[in-house]
């Protein structure tokens, strides 16, 4: 039996990177402050010391250059893992990610398939204001040619990151920075992967289905625990992969419960919740007991002082659930 250890998400991600760099000598890390300093969140701590400055590189401060250079490195036979220090800073790199990385396999008739993993901390709840809080996943889900993945706890973080690193497709790997340290759990020390493009039922229930990803998963579990106190039996699904996404698991659940609430931090309009409810309603329509509903962030720039009103909370989720169940 393999040994495991209690650790936080940063430790789990660091282990995944360490194991992969050790196994795959063509794997390299490129990003701002990821080398000597080990990253502003310490996810790459110790890796430059272990693998050298040629494989764990501090990049000039230019996200477009980091992403563009990574595409070229991949064309040249390396497996770059890049860090965009905050997801809010991914926008300068968007042309390289959307027009180059995402389209390269398709436009070259699969002659080339540059494989780059883009790691980036995302999300609110850390008093980071407009530019250290955003959840820009919908932009990338709306770009054919990318995988979009979200871990929600340390076990998933290590297994999903190793799966992303092994995957031949480009992956945008959104790390929930609010629970980087707060989320603690047992993680096997050995190399393991958690399959991409499948959803995970974190809690079984019969009255309604909650779907979330990343940092909203523990909030939804908290809401389900509160709902249990009121006599409601809530199912919670961690979607984990948003592109492609496992709508089949959600459809099976909603076919049983007849109710769906999707919870995310990104602004609600055109957020991924819109896609999810539209995507599954084709199948679950005859089984519905209430309208399919989303609870997202407001259609405002991410606020600073009033952040706690913006972020979906367990109590607000419960408020929405009551209405759906009593519909």
């Amino acid at each position: 039996m393999s040994e495991s250890k209690s650790m936080n998400m940063i430790g789990a991600l660091n282990q995944a990177l360490d194991l992969y760099l050790e196994r795959e000598t063509n794997a390299v890390i490129l990003g701002e402050d990821v080398g000597h300093f080990g990253g502003v969140f310490r996810v790459t701590a110790g890796l430059q010391e272990k693998y050298g400055v040629e494989r764990v590189m501090d990049a000039p401060l230019a996200e477009a250059g980091i992403a563009g250079m990574a595409v070229g490195m991949a064309l040249g036979g390396l497996e770059p893992i890049i860090e965009i220090q905050f997801a809010d800073f991914i926008f300068p790199a968007i042309d390289q990610i959307v027009n180059e990385l995402a389209k390269y396999r398709y436009r070259s008739g699969a002659q080339y398939a540059p494989k780059v993993v883009v790691r980036t901390p995302y999300g609110g709840g850390i008093r980071g204001g407009h530019y250290h809080s955003q959840s820009p996943e919908a932009h990338f889900v709306h770009t054919p040619g990318l995988r979009v993945v979200f871990p929600s706890n340390p076990y998933m973080a290590k297994g999903l990151l190793l799966a992303a690193l092994e995957c031949p497709d480009p992956v945008i790997f959104f790390e929930p920075k609010r629970i980087y340290r707060a989320s603690q759990g047992d993680v096997p020390l050995e190399y393991y992967t958690v399959p991409l493009d499948r959803a995970w039922t974190m809690r079984h229930g019969e009255d309604a289905t909650l779907v979330a990803w990343g940092a909203m998963v523990p909030i939804c579990l908290e809401a389900a625990a509160l709902a249990e106190g009121e006599g409601y039996d809530i199912e919670v699904i961690d979607l984990a992969s948003l592109a492609p996404y496992d709508s089949a698991t959600v459809e099976r659940s909603v076919t049983r419960t007849g109710r769906l609430l999707v919870v995310h931090e990104a602004p609600q309009t055109c957020g991924f919740g819109a896609e999810l409810v539209a995507g599954v309603q084709d199948v679950v329509f005859p089984y519905l007991e209430a309208p399919l509903r989303r609870l997202g962030g407001f259609d405002t720039p991410f606020p600073y002082t009033l952040e706690s009103h913006y972020m979906p909370s367990a109590d607000r989720i419960l408020f929405e659930l009551r209405e759906l169940i009593d519909y």
Binding site: N26, G65, A67, G68, M69, A70, V71, G72, Q96, K103
Partner: peptide
């Protein structure tokens, strides 16, 4: 011959990255 795209200049960081890969490998 890697793939040409219409947005101009995107190939330049690719050449830089490819050169890095060439040296490392």
């Amino acid at each position: 011959v890697p793939s040409i795209s219409s947005p101009v200049g995107t190939q330049l960081p690719h050449a830089c990255g490819f050169g890095y890969a060439s040296r490392l490998r």
